[in-house]
């Protein structure tokens, strides 16, 4: 297969045709901060945190195909500050009470905030009135924490391929709908996977919680993205 030569912040990288900038960067051990992306799912480009610049033009690394000669700008101060701003927007859009959340320490939104050392968002808290939907079979939907990454929409399907989750409405009123009937039919394994895929504490599997204590969780000691490049040469 032909090879694509490109650079990320000056580092020479090799990609293959069909790869996105994100995939190619990861394969070269380069971390591009991301949130809605999930390995194996079709990219959604909804959080925009993986925005990079190519020839000055901003584009989402998760959806943009890599091409020959691309000079990708990734860790510039400007982009990093804008990414931080997006994390802050998501924090003020919902009600993220980290101390009360089962996902705290395993939460990717929080992990990005840690990475960016967010002490307080630059935006005012919106404190939206949101609900908890408890009747999704083995799952409950904590709308206060949903960041609309669309991971559940993209991945949780019934055996015959029907979507269990889907976007409803639009504008700032948009939310993720759950077909309760279909959700109640999800197996224990499906429910567990749905919870694990949710980057925040919005989709939770009932009857389990705080198995691993705070302080010993994924991002408590290790920043998000630390694993990238560990295995690369």
């Amino acid at each position: 297969m032909s090879k694509i030569k490109f650079t990320v912040d000056g580092k020479a990288c090799i990609g293959t045709p069909g790869q996105t900038i994100m995939e190619a960067a990861l394969a070269n051990g380069v971390y591009i901060p991301a949130l809605c992306r999930y390995e194996g799912l079709k990219p959604a480009g909804s959080c925009r945190i993986c925005t990079v610049r190519v020839g000055g033009r901003p584009m989402a690394a998760c959806t943009q195909p890599v091409s020959e000669g691309m000079a990708v700008e990734n860790m510039s101060q400007e982009l990093e500050d804008m990414r931080k701003a997006l994390v802050e927007m998501l924090f003020v859009e919902g009600n993220h009470m980290c101390p009360t959340c089962e996902k705290s320490g395993n939460c990717e939104l929080q992990a990005l905030a840690y990475r960016y050392q967010m002490l307080v968002p630059r935006f005012p808290y919106q404190f939206p009135a949101r609900s908890v939907e408890p009747t999704g079979g083995r799952l409950l939907f904590e709308y206060n924490r949903c960041i609309q990454c669309l991971r559940c929409v993209r991945s949780v399907k019934t055996k015959d391929g029907k979507a269990v989750f889907g976007p409803l409405g639009r504008s700032e009123k948009k939310k993720i709908g759950m077909d309760k009937e279909l959700a109640s039919k999800l197996s224990d394994k499906d429910a567990r996977e749905a919870m694990d895929r949710c980057p925040v504490g919005a989709l939770l599997k009932k009857e389990v919680g705080f198995v691993i204590p705070i302080g010993k969780r994924k991002f408590d000691k290790t920043p998000i993205g630390s694993d990238v490049g560990k295995t690369a040469s």
Binding site: N95, T100, F127
Partner: peptide, 17 residues
């Protein structure tokens, strides 16, 4: 501002909606 409550209302702010 020291702590989550001072910074974002924290647990007491769960009534905000």
């Amino acid at each position: 501002s020291v702590g989550e409550c001072a910074i974002m209302g924290g647990l007491p702010a769960m009534r905000n909606g």
